[in-house]
Design a protein around this nucleic acid. Sequence first.
RNA 1: GGGCUUGUAGCUCAGCUGGUUAGAGCGCACCGUUGAUAACGGUGAGGUCGCAAGUUCAAGUCUUGCCAGGCCCA
Length: 952
Amino acid sequence: MSDSTNNNRDTQDKDKFRDTVFLPKTDFPMRGNLPEKEPVMVQKWQDIDLYAKIRHASADKPKWILHDGPPYANGNIHMGHALNKILKDVINKSWQMMGYNAPYVPGWDCHGLPIEWKVEEKYRNAGKDKDDVDPIQFRKECREFAQEWVDIQSTQFQTLGVIGDWKNPYRTMTKHGEAQIAREIHKFLHNGGLYRGVKSVLWSTVEQTALAEAEVEYKEHKSITVWVRFPVVETACEALKNSDIVIWTTTPWTLPSNRGIFFNNDIDYGVYEITEVADDARCKVGDRLAFATKLSDQIKEQAKIIAMKKVAEFKGTETEGTICAHPLRGQGYDYDVPCHPADYVTDEDGTGFVHVAPSHGPDDFVLGSQYGLEITDNVDNDGSFKAHVPLFAGLKIYDENGKMDAGNFAPLKAMDEAGKLLSKGSVRHEYPHSWRSKAPLIFRTTPQWFIAMDNELGLRETALQAIKDTNWVPAKGEARINAMIAQRPDWCISRQRAWGVPIALFVDKKTLEPLKDDAVLKRITDAFEEHGSDAWWSMDAQEFLGSAYNAEEYDQIFDIVDVWFESGSTHSFVVDDREDLGNGENKQVDLYLEGSDQHRGWFHSSLLESCGTKGRAPYKNVLTHGFVLDDKGYKMSKSLGNIVDPLKLMKQSGADILRLWTMTSDYAEDIRIGKDTIKNTSDLYRRIRNTLRFLLGAMDGFTASEKIPEDQYKDMPELEKLMLHELSQMDQKIRGHIENYEFGKLATMLHQFCNNELSSFYFDIRKDRLYCDDATSFERRATRTVMTHIFDCLVTWLAPILSFTAEEAWSQKPDGIFEDAQSIHLRDFPTLPESWHNADLAGKWDKIIAARKQIQEAIEPLRASKGLGSSLEACPVLYATADQKEALESVDMADICITSGFKIEEGNANIEITKAEGEKCNRCWKVLPEVTNHANHICNRCDNVVNKKQAA
RNA sequence: GGGCUUGUAGCUCAGCUGGUUAGAGCGCACCGUUGAUAACGGUGAGGUCGCAAGUUCAAGUCUUGCCAGGCCCA
């Protein structure tokens, strides 16, 4: 007989018996093809209004509320948005499936500068000036712009698989939102938190307006530098007597506003007596000058001093209490100029002494205020000196084109004439300019509205306590926000802008006190509720003031409120005011969840706002995630060209890949994304998908009658019971992780369960039973019953993460076995019977599994030497102690090791692999002696099954 | 410049209060299977735990410095 004849017979037999084997069958494809399927599913969820169905189905369950932080309605979503929204969705779905009613109301931040700019830009491009546009019209265009992006982002978020109330999100620009934000401001008016103060801001003399930091561009600018002498008039420092302190500045125009001198306690200073000077030097022999010793050579050269000697040394600390005269004393500048320490003063350049004009620099302002230095009001909106300024009234710092003007040169000249100018020069340095006009900017103090941190309201104290009362996840977030709240200055909430909610107040022109009449305030917010805050511009002031007050005696405030105050108020106008979230019970929500930057942003402003109005935090738990970086750990940026676009990624790989990536990363830290990570995630995804596919295939044709009744579970084989135990273990771990906000471990755990417990263990072992056993046998029914339980659990556990894939798998399940839910997302995690838990069994099987592992290792060398192919060709002999022998004999080790035979002998621990005796069964492929006796070359078991099948 | 923070195999992550040869999954290599088949099973090779000092009988784990990142400020 030739080989080919043999092969033919084998092939025929194989074909013959292949049809009698119960191979897995399912329409759930191996390949996900997610980019095509996901959008269809999103559409379906919208069509059936899945969100409403979930709400309806869980209406009676206890509420669990994650309150969404509003993204800014401007531009397409980026990876950070994707991470944030996916995380929220996974967490929310998890709690929902734990048996809670977890509504998700997405929101948007709609007011603010970036949108205002975009609209302004449109006007500029049309050759119009924003200031010429009617504010109502301007705001209308801003609103339309914002709404456009709300709609776009809404669609994009939904493609991520995020389920929420997309039909009815919250927005900071709705009429109710604006009205309630105004009410919140009024609460601070009543509780004493709100006050009017001044603040140092960057000011454009050309546009005559304050600029936000984001409107400022830093570029090179040539400034005048001057070294100026301040004669010491009073000092406890012996060295300083009869000398002049030398300061250095690049802004000569600030000298008329000088009110102090700062030094550094740690710097070494010297007093130098001039002994020889050049002809064109501005100082003379015998002058005594004080400055930092480290800078003496530099100053000597600059001042054209040929020779000088150090006559005294002193530490910065000794300078305390020294008082100087202004260089223009006798010409209207007769006040004292005190010296104070300041850490920011260095001896890197200049003189080691810094001149202080509290009105014209942020450091000057903050420290100057602390030392009680006068905040001058010398400079007008257009950059000219006000009329009360001696010598320089009317002179402008910059002209209308932003060029340096007499306001800079005149003080310099006056100093020189007074003999107080030591030297002058120029320097090129980075300097703030207007984004719009490109003109250089100046610092100027302007009146602004503040919320006090430390007055009778005690906001800082309340907030610090609220931080302690909140659960911060990860815990390090607490230290971060605590430091910020502990150190922050009063909250400046006013902006001189158009697109926002006005700080809707009237201020008495005479007393400068804001009007606190409730009737007036109510008329204002009622009008906002009806017309939106546009009413502040469109209605007449007298309409708000009513008959009790005369509009002419009041200033109407047109400043708008900081957008952080708006989003910080969402706990009020969203959480408290929406029935679906709220409960109207003034209750804290369960979770705020944002990036770690929000310790300064939303967590922070929400905390202050809520502490000010409610005396406690708006949240119980705060979860933070890190930032998305590129594959090397660098920040994504256009210039580096390393941006990963979530929309593109979804089109290439699918949202479920993105979702899985999020959850397998340690999102508490910054996370990386790149080619490798996506590849890795796709591989993980394939394994999970194939596990679902195998389960679906294994359940092919399963009906309720095949299912083992609950009361017979005790008779199931141990392996089946072990798997039920594994399920109950998983169930407990999963619930524990969710309750402790340890979502990072979930996806990894699920994947490893698919991989280890299922694919390489249970499925591999039970393939024989599924494929070859009698379909009606108790054992096969038990296996298939357990498969339905595994599927029931796994598909639901996966649903929060792989929302699309789980839904797809759910749609492929056999009928009549599972809960009748239209969508997987309408389900809860299955409640597993207590009886499934079986620690003793698990303990026993630990040993069995260890033995299995040893057998597998022992087979390997034979395979390598070609002594063996399939493990079914082997018959291991295990030598073990009597105890072990007993345990192993109680189970079918051949099945478990997927070998055709298995012998256990008493003896010293050892393993021998022998070849199984007999021939390969043409149906089940086991190598058994009995096969030889059958005409069809099949084993007894298979023969029975085939005969029974034919009879049926 | 300041506050907070990160750095463990090619990738994603574990490593509790310092204690035997640093773990897992993926990927990779090799083998098996060809009845989960663009799948499945097994075995194996990969790490001076960012670098350098120090504390200790003992450090990935504690201290200090440095390097490279990140967030928030200035």
